[in-house]
């Protein structure tokens, strides 16, 4: 267990030496708190998903497609 944690720290340090800036801070966050890292990742994905959904909704409406109703074409 201890070896695994030390290994992960070593890996994070090795990778962070390759680049600077946001990526370094991102890796440091995971090394510091995996829970916080998980919460932020999920929040970002949900927010970006909802935002992109709104943008594509707007574009599709501009194409003249009715997005509020549909005739059920079941057979």
């Amino acid at each position: 267990m201890t070896a695994a944690v030390k290994g992960a720290e070593l890996l994070a340090q090795m990778r962070s030496s390759l680049f600077q800036g946001w990526a370094e801070r991102w890796l440091a966050l995971y090394a510091k708190s995996p829970f916080q890292f998980t919460v932020i990742t999920i929040a970002v994905v949900v927010t970006v998903g909802a935002f992109l959904g709104m943008i594509t909704d707007f574009i599709i409406k501009r194409l003249g497609i009715d997005l509020n109703s549909r005739e059920v074409r079941e057979k």
Partner: peptide, 28 residues
């Protein structure tokens, strides 16, 4: 599933966000 894998450090957020750009248009 995403939360479980992210906690284990096996999620690449950058790749997921780039895929989401294509997926948002495709899903609609």
């Amino acid at each position: 599933g995403a939360a479980t894998y992210t906690y284990k450090g096996r999620t690449e957020l950058v790749a997921a966000l780039i895929m989401l750009v294509g997926a948002s248009a495709g899903a609609q």
